[in-house]
Design a protein around this nucleic acid. Structure first.
Lengths: 365, 365
DNA sequence: CCGCAAGGTGAAAACGTTTACATCAATTTT
DNA sequence: AAAATTGATGTAAACGTTTTCACCTTGCGG
């Protein structure tokens, strides 16, 4: 029974230190340390005496002391713009997998664009509390990344800070958005709207450009009234749907949302207004989160290789933390077009579009 | 421009220590330390000299050294059974909020029932690498919690380990499940199925019992064929739906799922099979995650006060980490019944059920 | 004038490891 | 047989703080 009554003083029993073990085994602390880190270097009889003493005392090395001596913490900080987003799940798992395997602990920080929180994490980094940083769109404002990277390696995942020169692992957003838009066009759609992510976001810009370029190449004029600025969340999707429903001019026949959450919220809202998806309006998402498959209709979307982004980013960071002088520029990964049920052929189309495979890989950047 | 070429050696510029500052200000390290931690204790002229020196050297105290000396790490470990689950989002945010404000860093671990990972976290705890643990259903197997709690305080959130005596902050699962089942009964349903969570889970049992007790009280026989064991994920929901669709006997008219994900997957699958929800079958969820509102139909579900659970749990832990001898037994919070569109009156019902408010609070446990 | 409190500061110990260096015995080499 | 090598262990310094204790000024009351 644990002390649920909160009565026994904590730490009443002092934790055994290396000195306790040493005394008990009648050796020096150096020998104990060696017996643990490099057993070969200590003779068999001594070693077993030490091991016995360790078992008896229940000794376990103090990580802080070890870190102080080693001048490293074996901890990596992951900075996210919102821990709660389903999009990060898979990435985080992959990151955690790689880092744990490499012997690092992972700590997560949610910046939420709150200056106080950001300053907090900036301080943590500068205090040498972490050996590396994985940045997921969490901006440390006013942070000089070139300088910060010199104290601790920083790797970017699924977001870019163009002028920083930091290695970034993300998807080729331009190509992916272009592919999705082309897909819609190939199904006969001409009036295609786009719900963007947050404007400050570099990726938002790339996707917007991919969308634009696809239209232009197809000889379709870009209509700025059909570009609806949003964020990567439900509320923005609902707002975009209201815009859509309230449109004075002719409604678009297809909508390309910059995230699955955006698409889902959009669909829900227009369905509530009595429209059918995809019969009345086609809606495409972006990301390929798990929920996209479970929605009704299942979302046609761009699958981002999230696990791979996480894995590669983490591996890159591990390499750089090891002090290796790597030439690391990051990587641009390809997306896969997932064709499901939220997008249909344009109702007014004359000819049936050629059969398309259900999954199409975009070009790598 | 950061060293994207990976050419400059990292740490070429040694980080300034307290000694550098001391020398520069012609004082002792003790004075520098005092100037930072307790400015009142050092005379004005000295203090400003110290501050100047700090600014000039860019000194920032080394957290590891500080921790070693203070015998604490100011870090809390959160152990989850699956970092990716949407259910944790809100809880995690609340926890992170409270702990950050209290000056603690938060590190997350995903145990995934993997013995290797579990051993890894057990070691972290025992190595004194954290000041406290928040357990979210992550079992540390073979761990003696009574003992572990003596080295570092452990608080449970949204999961119980009955024999441990640890403080637990969770919902009254029995009452909530009972309320939901009664709601279905009140709408005329008599054949009501239940998709459970993982059987090993204490909460699963409580919800199951709440469901059973409601049936019994209403004079409805409990049919074990309508209790479908699952997990808190999509796959289990799909599987349950297959069971439902393949049923030899008369199909239930309502299904109560132990989680929203379960409900969503169930609905998706039966809809794909041509059934309508709620016209052909009513489906209720549990949790009240964000997606439940965006689904079509919007889920009738039990809203868990996730933010509050997280907040209370974290505050409890902070208190206990401070060494306070608190009488802390945890708390059982009430859920709210969220009446939306996935549940309808039983089609064969004679009389119309009385109008129900859209949101009903369950009794606290 | 002397003693004493109070305020400011410094010297050094402590936190618990790892590791460079020194030591010593037991070998092997010359 | 002396010298050199090897292997096992101990000594003590280092990691960068915080904090106890002691010290030295002052200013003050007696």
């Amino acid at each position: 029974m644990a002390r649920s009554d909160g009565t026994q003083p904590r730490g009443a029993t002092r934790r055994a230190t290396i000195l306790d073990v040493a005394r008990r085994a009648s050796v020096s602390t150096a020998t104990v340390s060696r017996a643990l880190t490099d057993p070969e270097r200590v003779a068999e009889p001594t070693r077993s005496r030490v091991m016995a003493a360790i078992a008896e005392t229940g000794y376990t090395p103090n990580a802080t002391a070890r870190n102080l001596r080693a001048r490293s913490t074996k901890i990596v900080l992951c900075l996210l713009p919102g821990l709660g987003h389903s999009f990060w799940n898979v990435i985080i798992n992959a990151v955690e997998e790689v880092l744990t395997r490499a012997g690092y602990g992972v700590i997560f920080g949610d910046t939420r664009s709150d200056p106080v929180r950001e300053a907090h994490y900036d301080r943590i980094v500068r205090a040498g509390q972490v050996d590396g940083v994985l940045l997921f769109n969490g901006r440390l404002p006013g942070a000089d990344f070139a300088e910060l990277d010199r104290v601790v390696p920083i790797t970017l995942i699924s977001n870019d800070i163009p002028s920083s020169g930091l290695p970034v692992f993300e998807v080729d957003n331009h190509a992916a958005a272009r592919t999705m838009t082309e897909h819609l066009i190939s199904l006969g759609h001409r009036r295609i709207a786009h719900i963007t992510g947050p404007i400050a976001n570099v990726e938002t810009g790339e996707r917007l450009n991919g969308y634009r370029d696809a239209l232009i190449d197809a000889g379709i004029a870009v209509d700025d009234d059909l570009i609806w600025p949003g964020k990567f969340n439900f509320t923005a999707g609902v707002k975009a749907a209201r815009t859509f429903l309230g449109l004075e001019c002719e409604r678009p026949t297809a909508v390309f949302a910059a995230s699955d959450e955006l698409a889902i919220a959009f669909i829900k809202t227009v369905k509530d207004a009595g429209l059918r998806v995809p019969e009345d309006v086609s809606v495409a998402g972006f990301d390929g989160i798990e929920y996209s498959a479970m929605y009704d209709p299942a979302l046609t979307t761009m699958l981002q290789p999230r696990a791979e982004m996480g894995r590669l980013g983490a591996e890159n960071l591990v390499l750089r933390m090891s002090g290796a002088q790597v030439e690391s520029k990051g990587a641009r990964l390809p997306c896969s077009l997932l064709i499901r049920d939220s997008v249909a052929e344009y109702a007014g189309a004359k000819a049936k579009a050629p059969a398309t495979p259900r999954r199409v890989r975009t070009a790598a950047g």
